[in-house]
Nucleic acid binder design. Structure first.
Lengths: 294, 294
DNA sequence: CTAGGTCTGCAATTTGAATTGCAGGCTACA
DNA sequence: TGTAGCCTGCAATTCAAATTGCAGACCTAG
């Protein structure tokens, strides 16, 4: 407790420095504080804790855990960082324009944020909800689901697999296991769904998978960017989203967000199957001894 | 005194409206308030009046003369104009709040976009570039890099591994291969870096890995959200980012964006190592027969 | 299943800000 | 010059925020 509070800097410094001591109430409070730093600096402890849904005492305890004398001193700290950056309430567009003029050094995160946010904003008009729905309907009606992605898309395929499995679906991830490739595809039936992921270039293996799935009559879904959009027997449904600038965008933010939307939509149309399965999984995990959780 | 306080607008309105009643102390106070509206909204009556060189009671009397119930209400008014300005660059958050009230049907993607964009916007103020830099410097100077994440974080660890490998670094992904766990960690030396990924809950294995890495003197980096921030021997560097609502946010968009920023920053400080390696990789891939590309 | 430790919410207490009654001082005007 | 009216600072009081002790709840390990 004798740790002196830093004179300036970001809240994140404090959080990471004292991360080992933080409790559940603390994180809920910090969520609120981080989300809207302006209100955080203005409001008093009672208001903040009400907004976070915790007892006012929790705010005091958080402040002490972070090394402050009490909540007022903590709020003073929050205010100091606010006043320091108080100069720029410009909109993001103006900020981006200003940055393009300035030198690049030391603006890495902010510059990436601008580009990601712009890409997501573009999504809003580029992909209609009906496309999301056609994916989720196909998944809902599938006997078995195969997710297929290579390279960067393999990371996404593993994430999608994990989430769909937890939602109670029978899913196989073909992202890494190239050796099981033939065996898996061999079991394909017209009741199955193959979800293809491809970015940058259409991989040869993806094309092969598409061909085989087509021959066997399985339903094929494709989530791609503009560079990998060409599949020869056209998939039953395809969502094709721009991943921002042609520059070095290796980011999977846009396709991952689409996948999240699909999975969330699926939970809304499968008559509670996802919800129930997630509940069961949660209960199951809690029944395990702590060492095995996750 | 029964005049109701205006619900919106600027301080100047109030001043001109009640100009006839204002006294000497009042003008000295208002000078201070107008000169720095941000501090005015933040500080309490005592501080403001001391700064203006008048007695604290004068602040209360000014507030009453302007038609407020008391000084706290006056300060709330000053804050409201400040927060209103702030809300202007927070469109997605406001929109999300509006939608949560409305019916959910048929807005899946747009709703997810709002929440992701709001989370990314919050990142801008929450994580300073210096944190990014400390990660990238540690990675640059590492002999060997170990990436560690379980559950959802495993997808991210595989993506990070892939990208760092293509940038020419010696990286091992401990995301899935739990069986090699001990063997990998056994080779740890103080020249190595262990990058831990954890969200939702601190996994037991992650904690173990952190402990072992600490004993062996390897440098430890942690990228977490607020709920998984606790590592007992505190890591050498930690970035701890809020992933939006406590609701069902399983999204990896925020941590993935941070990881992208780190890898991009790394390419800027490693004297061309990343760039060269990426070029080589590109040339190598094109030298392969088409069937093997990707 | 039990014991130990930690976290959380409640409630009592403390602290400090906000308010107001009062007295002194200034000014304007007769 | 006297006096009425207003403003100001002081100090006592009121009120709300902040703090802390305590007991129940939860989790963990044995």
């Amino acid at each position: 407790m004798s740790k002196p509070a830093p004179s300036s800097g970001f809240l994140s410094d404090l959080i990471t420095r004292n991360a080992s001591r933080l409790t559940g109430s603390d994180t809920r409070l910090l969520d609120v504080l981080v989300k809207d730093p302006v209100r955080a600096a203005i409001e008093n402890g009672k208001e903040v804790s009400l907004r976070a849904g915790v007892h006012p005492a929790a705010a005091v305890r958080l402040a002490k855990r972070l090394g402050f004398e009490g909540y007022p001193e903590f709020r003073t700290y929050l205010q100091s960082s606010l006043v320091d950056e108080g100069n720029d309430f410009e909109n993001p567009a103006a900020r981006m324009a200003a940055r393009l003029v300035r030198a690049e050094e030391g603006q890495v995160l902010s510059s990436i944020l601008d580009s990601e946010i712009a890409a997501l904003e573009a999504l809003r008009t580029a992909v209609p909800d009906s496309d999301i729905r056609s994916f989720s309907e196909a998944l809902r009606d599938a006997r078995k689901i195969f997710i297929f992605g290579r390279g960067h898309a393999a990371s996404l395929s593993s994430l999608i697999t994990l989430r769909l499995q937890r939602s109670g679906y029978d899913v196989a991830d073909l992202g890494d296991r190239t050796h099981h490739f033939a065996e898996m595809l061999n079991t394909l039936s017209p009741a199955d769904v193959v979800w293809l992921l491809a970015f940058r270039r259409p991989s040869q293996q993806i094309s092969d998978a598409n061909g085989i799935a087509s021959m066997r009559g399985a339903k094929r879904l494709a989530l791609t960017d503009l560079h990998a959009a060409r599949f020869d027997p056209a998939p039953d449904h395809q969502i094709c989203a721009s991943r921002g600038e042609a520059g070095e965008s290796q980011s999977l933010v846009v396709p991952m967000t689409i996948a999240n939307a699909i999975i969330l939509d699926l939970a809304g149309i499968d008559a509670g199957k996802s919800i129930r399965s997630l509940e069961e999984f949660k209960a199951f995990r809690q029944s395990l001894p702590p060492r095995w959780r996750r």
